[in-house]
Amino acid sequence: MKIAFVGKGGSGKTTLSSLFVRHLVARGLPVLAIDADINQHLATALGATPEQADALPTLSAHLPLIKDYLRGDNPRISSAAAMVKTTPPGTGSRLLTVTGDNPVYAACVREVCGTRLAVTGPFTEEDLGVACYHSKIGAAELLLNHLVDDRGEYVVMDMTAGADSFASGLFTRFDLTVLVCEPTMRSVGVYRQYQSYASDHGVRIAVVGNKVCDAEDLEFLRGQLGKDLLCWFRRSDFVRASERGVVRPFDELEPDSAVALSAIQDELDAITRDWASYQAQAVTFHLHNARAWANERVGEDLALQVEPGFVPRPPVRANIK
């Protein structure tokens, strides 16, 4: 199951992403966490030191390796260089699993506080003024297109702030998108913008209130969000400590926060993915990108990378380590 956390900058989406990852890890469930936020704070939110976070390898720095590995011997892809962020898998492509070992994970994924973590990478000095951050998260989109997770396995992504994630097809790669909303009109505005974009693409959204201080805050969120409000988080000493760099044992999390995390997992677990629709959505965005810019950049008709009728599926459960 794939889940993304989005929201206005400063709403607490990285904090809730990390809490949800730790919630799953505490239950002994397999998790792959991905930090696709421009600020790259998920590692430290999970408990890594700043030095450990800075030393993590990045997906964007290993994009040639990722393309070469995922391409496999797919005859529809002329070269690894011809792959773009939306290239869908086909016969001969190498597919990733949450728990498997492969050269991509060996190069780009590290264990941080009990979970596998991949980071897209921050801006470098060379990027300033000349690059868009979406060039960084393209590696994550390509990875998710080739990742065949199964029920009981979780991919958790901390996304870019606001509606920036709509600059690519990445927003369609999740079974559930959790929009973190503070009890403010600005935060509600981001929710409404996200909802209007997502509704045309069948994206499931659950809204989670955060930084709820009192009954007035909760009444405001209920009035603005209605049935989309799944649960909420109150001010938390556990979270405040983690934001100061003090990572407490997870069983010290306040009970009401633990209940909210379980509500998010229950909402996610109730979803059954239609793999054919999932692949069709990837193909739609790939064809759109091919026409808009990728054909010209690569010098090929990238529509030919699409294999009609191909549907990726997770391996038989017994083959998953």
Rank of each mutant, 00 (worst) to 15 (best):
D175I: 04
A48D: 07
R244D: 14
H62G: 00
Y105P: 00
G226N: 12
L32M: 04
G9F: 09
T177Q: 13
R291N: 15
V259N: 11
R235W: 14
G92I: 00
Q224P: 08
G100M: 07
D200P: 05
S199F: 01
V180W: 06
N319R: 15
G9W: 10
R186P: 02
G226F: 10
L32D: 02
V190I: 15
C231M: 09
G92D: 04
F310N: 05
G28I: 13
P122I: 08
F123S: 14
E111W: 03
L179M: 13
F166I: 13
T58L: 08
R22C: 10
N74Q: 02
A276I: 08
K13V: 04
V203L: 10
A161K: 03
A280T: 10
P315Y: 03
F123T: 06
G245P: 11
G209E: 07
G47I: 08
L96E: 02
T86N: 11
G223M: 11
A107I: 06
A45F: 04
V25L: 11
S236A: 12
V104N: 01
G10Q: 13
E182L: 01
P30T: 04
S277Y: 03
C213F: 11
Q224T: 11
S165G: 03
T58A: 13
A33C: 06
T86G: 07
L128H: 13
P75S: 09
Q40V: 13
Y133T: 09
R317A: 15
G121D: 03
Y133S: 10
L302H: 00
F310V: 00
A303C: 15
D217T: 13
A43G: 11
D301R: 07
P88N: 07
E252L: 15
G92Q: 04
G162W: 02
T177S: 14
A161Y: 05
T49I: 06
N295M: 11
R291S: 12
L170K: 05
F285W: 13
V212D: 01
V316Y: 09
C113Y: 10
A198G: 10
W293Q: 11
A276G: 09
H201A: 14
L95T: 07
V109P: 00
D37I: 05
G92M: 07
N102W: 06
T58G: 02
L304W: 09
T99G: 07
K67P: 00
L229Q: 04
E296H: 12
L302V: 08
H146F: 10
A61C: 02
L147A: 01
A118E: 03
G226K: 12
S79N: 09
D269M: 09
G202P: 05
G202Y: 01
R291A: 15
L56G: 04
R248A: 14
L179Q: 05
D256F: 11
S262G: 15
A140R: 00
E300M: 13
V190S: 02
K211F: 13
F220W: 11
